[in-house]
Amino acid sequence: MPRTILIADDDPHIRQLLAFALAKAGLESIEAGDGEAALQQAADQAPDLIILDINMPRMDGIEVCRRLRAGSDVPILFLSSRDDEIDRVLGIELGADDYVVKPFSPREVVARVMAILRRVGARPPAVESAAAPLGHGQLRLDPDGWQASWGEEPVALTVTEFGILRTLAAMPSKVFSRDAIIDRLHGPGFAITDRTIDSHVRNLRAKFAGVGANDVVETRAGVGYRLGNCGA
Rank of each mutant, 00 (worst) to 15 (best):
L94Y: 03
E85M: 15
I92H: 12
I92G: 00
D98R: 07
G95D: 13
R107C: 02
R107F: 03
P106E: 10
A111F: 00
L90N: 11
P103K: 03
D87G: 01
P106H: 09
P103D: 04
V109T: 01
D87M: 09
L94F: 07
L90Q: 15
I92A: 07
G91T: 00
R88V: 12
P106I: 12
D98T: 07
R112V: 11
E93H: 14
L90F: 02
D97M: 09
L94W: 01
R107V: 09
V89L: 15
D98E: 14
E85S: 12
M114G: 06
V89P: 09
A96E: 01
E93F: 10
D97L: 09
S105D: 15
D97Q: 13
V110H: 03
G91Y: 02
I92W: 08
F104E: 04
G95H: 14
F104S: 06
V100S: 08
V110E: 05
V113Q: 09
A111P: 01
P103L: 05
G95T: 13
A115C: 02
R88Q: 12
L90G: 01
M114V: 15
I92K: 14
K102G: 04
A96L: 07
G91H: 05
I92Q: 08
V110L: 04
D87A: 12
I92S: 02
A96P: 03
R88C: 06
P103Y: 04
D84G: 08
V113L: 08
I86L: 10
D98P: 11
E108C: 00
R88N: 03
A96C: 02
D97W: 08
Y99D: 07
R107N: 10
G91M: 04
G95R: 12
A96S: 05
V89Y: 11
V109K: 00
D87I: 04
R88F: 11
V101N: 03
V109R: 00
A115K: 13
V113Y: 02
V89H: 13
V101C: 05
V109I: 01
I86N: 03
R88I: 13
